[in-house]
Design a binder for these strands. Structure first.
Lengths: 210, 210
DNA sequence: CAACTATTCAATTAAATTATTGAACAGATA
DNA sequence: TATCTGTTCAATAATTTAATTGAATAGTTG
C-alpha cells in the first residue's frame, strides 16, 4: 500500500460519511432523531418527506452508520448511532450559521413575523417567575427533557391550559433552533392571556454543547 | 413564510455547506489548508489532484465559504475561512473514525508495514530525552509549529542530519493523522542510526482539540 | 508590447444522487 | 390461511457532480 493509496482510501471513506450530511432531508431527519428514536412512519409524518423517500434516506444514513435500527413488531425504529453523530451535526450547524448569515436572518424573519423572536436562556431561568414547558410529543419528553419542565405537546395545549400557572411566564421549548412548535405554543399562549417566550436552548443542544 | 418554507430554506443552506465536505479531494485540501495558506499550484502539487481540478474544488469550497482567498502578484492564495471550518472538519473526522473502524485499520496497516506505528504523545515529551522535529515544508512551520520543534522538511532531511542530536530520540511530526511525511522521516532517521518515532498529535490537532 | 505565469472558465463526458411510483416482503392479526 | 400494516426494494427520469481538456483572462516580466 503506497502513501497515495492509503490517503485515497481514508479520505474516500470519510467523504462517504460526510456525504450523508449533504442532503436537507437527511439533516432534518438527524434533527428529529436527536430528540429520540422514531419509526419510518413517524419520520415521514414529522417532516415533509414521502414515506418511501424517508425510508431511502434512512438507508443512506444507515449505510453511513449514522443511525441504528431495531425492530419492534412490524415497525422499524431508527435512532442516532452515538453521541458523535449529534456532535458532528452540531459542528456543521455552527459552521453553517457562521459562514452563511442568511440562516440566522431567515430564522429571525420567521420569528419576527410571529413576534416570537424574544427568547431567554437557561441560565436566566428562575423557577419562581418562570415555568419551563416542553411542547414536543410526549415520547420525546420521556426520552430526555430539561429538569423542571412540564410536558404538554403543542397539539394538546389548547385543551390543557388549566395545567399552567397563570402568574408565571411560560418558557416553551421544542426540538431545536429550527423547530417551530415552541413558536406556535407561544403564539397560542399569548392569545389566551399568558406571558410566554421561547427558550433559547433545546434539550439536544444542552446535552451536546457547541 | 410558512414553517415548512423556513425549514426547507435553512436545511438546504446547511446541506449546501455540508456538501463541500462530501468529496475526498476537498477533504484532503482542507487538511492541507489547516497547515497554512497555499496557492492553487501548491495545493495541486501536494495532492494527487490535477491543476484545473484543484482550482475547481477550491471554487466549490469558496462558494460554500469554507475558504478565503487573497491575491499575491499573479498567484491566488487560499486559506481556511475561520476556526470553525477546522472544528467541523475535526468533528467529521472523529465521527468517521468512530463509526468506520476500517479507517484506523488502514492507517495501522500502512504504518505497521513501515514499522512507524509506534508514536508518543505531547504530554510524554521530556526535552532532555526527546527532540521534536517538524518535517513539513518550511512555510508551514513558520505559519504555526509546536514549541521546541526544529524545522527540517523531509526532503532536506538526508542532507541536514548533522543538525540533529544523536543522543536524543527524534520525535517527528507533520500535517496530521493522514499525512505520511513523518513516517518517511522516521524510516530515514532509523536507517541512519537515530532513534526516531512519530508524534501522536499534529499542530492542527493541537490548536483544534477534539 | 510580447511573452510568460498562475489561474479560471467553458464544454464535454461519465457517474452519482434525488424523488416518485408501484411491486415485494415480513411480521401481526383475524 | 388470508389479510393488513409497516417497510424495503427496483425501476425510472430529472438533476447534480466530477474529472478532463483546452481556451480565456489577468497580472508580471523582459
Amino acid at each position: 500500500m503506497t502513501s497515495r493509496e492509503m490517503k485515497n482510501e481514508v479520505y474516500s471513506t470519510i467523504a462517504g460519511i460526510a456525504k450523508a450530511f449533504s442532503n436537507p432531508n437527511r439533516l432534518e431527519i438527524l434533527d428529529l432523531l436527536s430528540n429520540g428514536e422514531k419509526s419510518v412512519e413517524e419520520v415521514a409524518a414529522q417532516t415533509a418527506i414521502s414515506f418511501a423517500n424517508a425510508s431511502q434516506h434512512l438507508q443512506v444514513l444507515k449505510k453511513a452508520r449514522l443511525v441504528r435500527l431495531r425492530k419492534d413488531g412490524n415497525k422499524v425504529i431508527y435512532s442516532l448511532a452515538n453521541r458523535k453523530v449529534a456532535e458532528a451535526w452540531t459542528a456543521i450547524k455552527n459552521l453553517a450559521e457562521t459562514v452563511e448569515p442568511t440562516i440566522g436572518l431567515t430564522l429571525q424573519q420567521y420569528r419576527r413575523a410571529r413576534q416570537t423572536d424574544q427568547s431567554i436562556c437557561l441560565t436566566e431561568l428562575d423557577s419562581a417567575r418562570y415555568q419551563l414547558l416542553d411542547v414536543r410529543p410526549a415520547g420525546e419528553y420521556h426520552y430526555a427533557h430539561l429538569p423542571g419542565a412540564l410536558s404538554i405537546p403543542v397539539n394538546e395545549l389548547e385543551l390543557r391550559l388549566a395545567e399552567l400557572p397563570k402568574e408565571k411566564t411560560i418558557v416553551a421549548y421544542c426540538r431545536g433552533t429550527y423547530c417551530t412548535m415552541a413558536d406556535a405554543a407561544v403564539q397560542l399562549l399569548r392569545s389566551r392571556g399568558f406571558n410566554a417566550v421561547r427558550l433559547e436552548e433545546s434539550p439536544a443542544d444542552a446535552s451536546n454543547p457547541a
